[in-house]
Design a protein around this nucleic acid. Structure first.
Length: 194
DNA sequence: GCAATGATTTACT
DNA sequence: GTAAATCATTGCC
């Protein structure tokens, strides 16, 4: 059961980041379907410096985030890693949720093949999970209600199981680097860091 | 047109 | 624990 597109229009990006925990992220790439629970997210808003579209800075790259919610924003970082974001809010209000870690459900062998290794390091990081799911740069801007990538309802996560803390890898964002906008499921083995 | 840089991962000391 | 890899995007010339 796919999440309704209206869910992504919510104007509180941190609420969406929390709610996405436990949901099922599915991909169908080249006829191979894989799915995984979302176990770690980060919220990015136009109002803080960690966001590429901070202060409504619109460039060719960030224009994806200015569109209405419910689409994928895939950004290549450090020349190697694809980072997968869910664009939220209405058109003209750039906000997004970064998916940092997932827990594999189906297609584990395919993920291992794509990653070229086996074991726990399969999806425990934003660059790894895109590789495992077969998400590539050419999926940038596609709808999350499409037949290539979509999000379904998943397992229910208790409020007390959700941990909020500071985000990772954005020290340059100064005071906004301390915002507790990183969310993960307490005790899950697939989160990127403890 | 060109140099600087990063929402990371991996390997090495 | 620290450092290198590596390239699209960005901003300035």
């Amino acid at each position: 059961m796919r999440i309704d597109q209206n869910f992504y229009f919510e104007n509180d990006v941190t609420y969406i980041a929390k709610t996405l925990l436990g949901k099922t992220l599915c991909t169908n790439i080249n006829g191979v379907q894989t799915s995984a629970y979302i176990v770690e997210t980060e919220a990015y808003s136009v109002k803080e410096k960690g966001c590429h579209a901070y202060n409504y800075k619109k460039t060719n790259r960030t224009s994806i985030m200015f569109q209405k919610g419910g689409i994928a924003y895939i950004y290549l970082c450090y020349g190697i890693h694809n980072l997968f974001n869910v664009v939220t809010n209405i058109e003209g209000e750039p906000e997004a949720v970064l998916i940092r870690a997932i827990e594999p459900i189906n297609g584990v062998e395919t993920m291992e093949q794509r990653r070229g290794l086996k074991g726990k390091a399969l999806t425990s990081g934003p660059g790894k999970l895109t590789s495992a799911l077969g998400i590539k740069h050419n999926h940038n801007g596609i709808s999350l209600l499409s037949d290539n990538i979509w999000i379904e309802e998943g397992k229910k996560i208790d409020e007390i199981e959700i941990v909020s803390t500071t985000r990772i890898g954005i020290d340059y964002a100064e005071e906004d680097a301390f915002l507790p906008w990183r969310y993960y499921i307490r005790g899950n083995k697939y989160i990127s860091k403890l």
